[in-house]
């Protein structure tokens, strides 16, 4: 089976699922600098998409547009059937459906781990506290740090903090998870523990969009890889296609620099 056949097969398989994120010609400027130039892509339900690209290529900007941490100025973004506009109710609805994990964790330093996780479920989802804590402990179990529940973030290692951040996002029971360079701020020995959690999450059928520099993870877990440069999508394909037989010169150059 040729690589093109494989891509076709994946596309055929994905075609049966619903679109969950649709970006159509998304433009974004910072002052005079255009960070996104007509980004168009569709992400299906339960798909794991890894976004690669050199730094400054607009990958982080793009996924931050998807839950409106950044505001796009042109084109459309439709998440789970709701278009992102200035209407605050739409934004609130989408934000509670989309979980996000940041490069610098962004845990709340004045709250314990368990309070970090339960805050949003209690106040946004209106869960009773007991139920929320129960869920939080199960999630901590799932990310492998049940014993840290009553500590403060500052008392945890970077890898543990990032796993708490993942648990915090999952506690909202999101349909989509966005990862913005989740391992870039970690010491090498802690990267694996975070990636393991992400792999487990991918295998459980979560829709994920991951901006990362971890090529091994991309190759192993991604359904599709999107390669960006200078605010544009350059190439889209399966990991097999992308790593062994890229079609675009810019992709080849990028791969030659990092591999």
């Amino acid at each position: 089976m040729s690589i093109n056949d494989a891509t076709t097969a994946v596309n055929a398989e994905l075609a049966g699922r619903d679109d969950i994120i649709v970006c159509d010609g998304v433009d974004k400027w910072y002052g005079d600098f255009q960070a996104l130039k007509g980004v168009t892509a569709t992400i299906k339900e339960r798909e794991v998409v890894v976004v690669l690209g050199p730094s400054g290529s607009g990958k982080s900007t793009w996924i931050r547009c998807i839950n409106r941490l950044e505001q796009h100025q042109g084109g459309r973004i439709i998440v789970d059937g709701v278009e992102l506009t200035n209407d605050t109710r739409n934004i609130e609805k989408i934000r509670s459906e989309v979980g996000m994990v940041f490069q610098s964790f962004n845990l709340f330093p004045h709250l314990t781990v368990i309070d970090n996780i339960t805050l949003a479920p209690i106040w946004v989802r209106k869960r009773p506290r007991g139920e929320a804590e129960q869920t939080a402990r199960e999630l901590l179990e799932r990310v492998g740090i049940p014993e840290q529940a009553d500590k403060f973030p500052g008392q945890l290692s970077g890898g543990q903090q990032q796993r708490v951040a993942i648990a915090r996002a999952l506690a909202m029971e999101p349909r989509i998870m966005l990862f913005d360079e989740p391992t870039s701020a970690l010491d090498p020995e802690m990267i694996k523990e975070v990636l393991d959690v992400m792999k487990e999450l991918a295998n459980s059928g979560m829709t994920m969009m991951v901006v990362t520099h971890e090529m091994g993870f991309a190759r192993e877990v991604a359904d599709r890889i999107i390669f960006m440069e200078s605010g544009e999508i350059v190439e889209v394909g399966t990991p097999e296609h992308f790593f062994t037989n890229p079609t675009e010169d810019r992709t080849k150059l990028f791969l030659s620099q990092i591999l």
Binding site: N67, S96, V98, M100, L107, A120, V124
Partner: peptide, 25 residues
């Protein structure tokens, strides 16, 4: 700024963000 982004990403409203995240810190 990350604190604001994290609370926004979790869907907290402005009042909740101010009361639980911004003011205590």
């Amino acid at each position: 700024r990350g604190q604001y982004e994290a609370s926004d990403a979790l869907g907290l409203t402005t009042v909740q963000r101010t009361a639980f995240i911004v003011l205590p810190q």
